[in-house]
């Protein structure tokens, strides 16, 4: 059970949030210009990282804001939290240990 720091509300229990999958997958500007393979790649293919992973969460039972989380998928350590639209912080691969 994670403790997640919402950038707006502070630290809250995981049950207040919902998960939004991998972060930084922008919806293509012109989907029509993409091949079926490229479109399928956007639709279905996601990383399955062991270690540092950038993902989206929504504080759905709180402020309802979406934000990004850098989490270690092995230790579940949350390495960084940052707002939508912000670049991922540069972190040592795997996060601090």
């Amino acid at each position: 059970m994670l403790n997640i720091e919402c950038p707006w509300c502070g630290e809250r229990h995981e049950t207040e949030f919902h998960y939004g999958g991998e972060a930084h997958i922008a919806r293509p500007e012109s989907p029509e210009a993409l091949s079926d393979e490229e479109w399928a790649d956007f639709l279905f293919m996601r990383k399955n990282s062991k270690g540092l992973f950038f993902e989206r969460w929504c504080h759905s039972n709180g402020c309802r804001r979406w934000f990004n989380v850098a989490r270690n998928t092995v230790t579940h350590e949350i390495v960084a939290v940052y707002k939508m639209g912000e670049k991922p912080p540069s972190l040592v691969k795997g996060g601090k240990s």
Binding site: G20, C58, W66, M84
Partner: peptide, 13 residues
């Protein structure tokens, strides 16, 4: 509502 918010906040701010 979540769906609308998701697009407004993450794709089309």
């Amino acid at each position: 509502l979540d769906w609308l918010e998701e697009y407004l906040q993450t794709e089309w701010p």
